[in-house]
Simulated assay, not measured.
Amino acid sequence: MRSRLGGRPGSALQRLAVDAEPAAIYAIGDVHGCLDLLLALEAIIVADAAEIEGERWIVMLGDVVDRGERSAQVLDHMLEPAPGELRRFSLMGNHEAMMLDFLRRPSPNSAWLEFGGRETLLSYGVPLEALMHSRFGAREARQIVDLYIPGDHIEWLEELPVMIETPSTVLVHAGIQPGIGLSEQADLDLFGYRDNFEASYEDLGRTVVHGHTIREEPLVTANRIAIDTGAYFTGRLTAVRIVPGQPPVLFSSGSSRPQQSTTAMS
């Protein structure tokens, strides 16, 4: 797999690319600390992947942390080998970016704390009453964070790429800015762009797979697959299987029973 830094000046995150398609890609939407939903979905994926020969990937589309109750445990899981002899990749989401910024410059006034950061710190056992106390400043916040956040979690966050490309597929967290070439996309847009789902991405000649913007149902078209179904408040986590020459297949966990559906492109 080839790796390069971002396109526009100031881009710093890695962008990964391969010249040949894997046998299957299982892209998983925004987990947001919902470890039980992730484990259930992985079990569905492992069973499905057992029928496929060749290299099979799990790609986490970003935002595995925040909002839910078990972000620390999700990161522990990310550091373990992928299940079922699959190969796992994880992308930078806006919540990973916010968390990493906080861990580098911890402050009781960080905006991240209002966007799921409190729940993440609680999952590490951080005493929020101490962190949020008015007499604590940045120095005290630094000391508290250093006591509770494992170094390998920080290293994992720092190494996340912002994009993965195959000859037919582009995987990012948030989508891409319409009308701008991939090499010119800013890191911030790739993990933070708020999509209205109007762009077709037809001009790319590839399918863009992303999460970030919640939909009641996944969107699957010839050039776009959007699979964030709001796991942390709907209780439904969604994945899509992409196999060359076959229609995408959707999987979900957390509903009344595991779901699988083959989706015709609209």
Rank of each mutant, 00 (worst) to 15 (best):
E55G: 04
R2C: 08
D101A: 15
R67S: 05
M98A: 12
D30P: 10
P81M: 07
G254Q: 03
V18P: 01
P258T: 02
F115W: 14
R257W: 13
H212F: 11
L79F: 00
P81L: 06
V243S: 13
H210T: 07
H173S: 01
R70M: 09
A130G: 05
L160I: 04
P248R: 09
P167R: 02
P22V: 05
A47T: 11
V220M: 03
D30H: 10
L100A: 02
E158R: 15
T262G: 03
A12L: 15
L86S: 01
S168P: 03
G235Y: 08
E96W: 07
D36F: 04
A24T: 10
L16T: 01
Y232I: 02
V209P: 07
I176N: 02
M265C: 13
D63E: 04
D66K: 07
V31F: 09
G137A: 10
D189N: 13
I180Q: 12
P244D: 13
S200A: 11
P127H: 06
S134V: 15
Q14G: 11
P106E: 02
A174R: 07
N196V: 09
L37R: 09
R4T: 13
I214W: 08
L61D: 00
G211W: 09
A50L: 12
A141R: 03
L75R: 01
A111H: 14
R194Q: 14
I44R: 15
F233C: 13
M99W: 01
L91P: 00
M1C: 07
P127E: 11
M132R: 12
A27H: 06
F233L: 12
V243F: 08
A40W: 06
R139Q: 14
L5A: 13
A47M: 05
V209C: 10
M265L: 15
G211Q: 05
T213H: 07
G6N: 03
V126M: 09
G33E: 06
S107T: 11
E80C: 14
F115Q: 14
Q185S: 04
I25D: 00
W112C: 09
M132V: 08
Q259I: 03
P167H: 07
F89V: 08
A23F: 00
A130K: 15
V65K: 06
G10K: 04
E140H: 13
L79A: 06
E216A: 15
E119F: 02
S90P: 02
G93Q: 02
H212K: 11
A111S: 15
P244L: 12
A97C: 01
G125D: 02
L182M: 12
L204C: 01
D63I: 10
I25K: 01
P161Y: 11
L16K: 03
F136Q: 14
A12H: 11
P258F: 01
T221C: 08
T262R: 12
R56S: 12
